[in-house]
Design a binder for these strands. Structure first.
Length: 308
DNA sequence: CGCTTTTGACCAGCGC
DNA sequence: GCGCTGGTCAAAAGCG
């Protein structure tokens, strides 16, 4: 893993006085005096070498801490993804019968043979001719910014009509049922339910595929589907979406730094992302005159204290 | 007035 | 057969 991450050393500038102007006059005078006093100069050199060694040790410790934090974060992300995939499998098994029923319902309505993804394995999907047109399912996660909002309305760019609400057994929060209301022929449905673990997260399950392109124009944020990245299916919510998806091409620049923690393990394991992040951190610290001055002050203060 | 939301009733599958 | 559960229907109410 470290080989993928690359060099994550903080690369601290251990000679901060080099780039800082002007050099304090008092220091210059002290150096001049020190040149006249060789025993004191040797002592100062020893102190500086000791300080350099100490900084190198601290740098190494910090590097180890960052590495450890990355390892722990990756492990947690893997656990979350495992739990998500297990719960998704369980839900597919439970609803297999019902999905088959809804499939018949769609067939009666449209006259087109469609199958749910959960009804066939991928191998079967490849072998079965009627798999050419399939009902696609996906799950998206939306962060609800307003805790008082209990309407379960998810702004994903499409126009929905609510046709039912139920309290389910495994979740204290009600589940809302929506149909696409833009086109009568569009049979896309979605279920929205607040996450039992985190009530601030709305879980939207989409069933089917829009047969039109109607969307609102305010598509500010991104979504990452946990089961598919089909752009025709994945909605474009105006709220912030989170999930364990794998849309590698997603532009994360709009997600904001607060969403960094929500990036998938796969995304974080990408060496380029980590390297860019680390390079950005390092360059930001290097460019920041306040940081350099603070570091120089700290070092000069320590050295000055050592001298006195 | 037309559209959406609410909400109780209804239906079908499933396990016992 | 019965009860539980998830999904859907449809009448009434709400809203602009």
């Amino acid at each position: 893993m470290d080989s993928k991450r690359g060099n994550i050393s903080l690369d601290l500038n251990l000679n901060p006085f080099k780039d800082i102007n002007p050099t304090p006059k008092r220091e210059f005078n002290q150096v001049s005096q020190l040149e006249q006093d060789l025993p004191v100069k040797d002592e100062i050199t020893g102190v500086l070498v000791e300080e350099l060694n100490r900084m190198a040790t601290e740098n190494k410790k910090l590097t180890e801490m960052v590495t450890l934090a990355y390892q722990r974060y990756d492990a947690l992300q893997r656990q979350i993804n495992d739990l998500r995939s297990k719960s998704s499998e369980k839900e597919h098994v439970m609803s297999r019968k019902r999905k088959a029923e809804s499939e018949d319902y769609y067939n009666n309505l449209t006259g087109i043979n469609k199958n749910t993804e959960s009804s066939f394995s991928d191998d079967e999907a490849c072998r079965t001719p009627r798999q050419n047109i399939r009902i696609k399912n996906s799950t998206s996660y939306f962060r609800n910014t307003d805790p008082s909002d209990k309407s379960l309305v998810v702004k994903d760019g499409y126009q929905w009509r609510k046709y039912g609400q139920k309290v389910t057994r495994d979740n204290p929060f009600p589940r809302a049922y929506f149909r696409c209301s833009y086109a009568p022929s569009c049979q896309v449905k979605k279920k929205v339910q607040r996450s039992a673990d985190d009530p601030s997260i709305l879980v939207a399950s989409y069933e089917g595929e829009h047969n039109h392109n109607h969307k609102h124009h305010t598509q500010a944020a991104l979504t990452f589907s946990s089961t598919t990245c089909d752009p025709a299916l994945v909605p474009a919510p105006t709220s912030i979406a989170v999930s364990g998806g794998s849309c590698k091409n997603s532009d994360l620049s709009h997600a904001g730094i607060s969403n960094n923690a929500k990036m998938t393990a796969q995304q974080l394991e990408t060496p380029t992302v980590q390297q860019i992040l680390l390079q950005h951190m390092a360059s930001s610290l290097k460019r920041d005159p306040n940081f350099a001055e603070a570091l120089a002050t700290a070092l000069s203060g320590r050295s000055y204290n050592a001298w006195t």
